[in-house]
Computed example of a mutant assay.
Amino acid sequence: MKAIWNNEVIAESNKTKVVENNHYFPMDSIKCEYFKPSNTTTRCAWKGEASYYDLEVNGEKNKDAAWYYPQASHAAKPIENYVAFWKEVKVTE
């Protein structure tokens, strides 16, 4: 699977995990140069607290376009520290 935004592959892995129709990419599959930590957090009732990344690609910024669970709940442990995307990031094979 590939995550693409602004014509760049920002993550690529054949070991994604699908939860609620989102592909979660292993942390070691993301291209770190495009990811900037965000102060945004949200809480999921069953997965726990999510942290976010802003994407910066080719001079453009996509705020909070990636999220992950640094300390996932027991039920969501399989995706702990895996990264998922939204906000116009295309995830494709």
Rank of each mutant, 00 (worst) to 15 (best):
K2S: 12
K2V: 09
A3G: 13
N6K: 05
N6I: 04
N6A: 14
E8I: 04
V9T: 12
V9G: 05
I10Q: 00
I10F: 01
S13R: 08
T16I: 14
T16R: 06
T16Y: 07
V18F: 08
V19N: 05
E20H: 11
H23N: 15
H23T: 03
Y24D: 08
F25L: 09
P26I: 12
S29P: 10
S29T: 13
I30S: 01
I30G: 02
I30Y: 02
K31H: 12
C32Y: 03
E33T: 04
E33R: 07
Y34L: 11
K36P: 01
P37L: 15
P37A: 10
S38Q: 12
N39W: 00
T41Y: 02
T41E: 11
T42R: 01
R43I: 15
A45C: 06
A45R: 09
W46E: 12
K47G: 07
K47Q: 10
G48W: 00
E49F: 00
E49L: 11
A50Q: 00
A50V: 01
Y52C: 09
Y53R: 02
L55T: 08
L55A: 05
L55F: 08
G59H: 10
E60Y: 07
E60G: 09
N62M: 11
N62E: 11
D64Y: 03
Y68K: 06
Y68Q: 03
Y69I: 04
Y69T: 05
P70C: 12
A72P: 07
A72I: 04
A72T: 08
S73V: 11
S73F: 00
A75W: 00
A75H: 01
A75K: 14
A76Q: 04
P78F: 10
P78N: 06
I79N: 02
N81I: 03
N81V: 05
Y82N: 12
Y82P: 05
V83E: 04
A84S: 14
F85V: 06
W86T: 00
W86D: 03
K87Q: 13
E88H: 15
V89P: 02
K90G: 01
K90M: 13
V91G: 05
V91Q: 01
T92H: 06
T92S: 13
E93R: 10
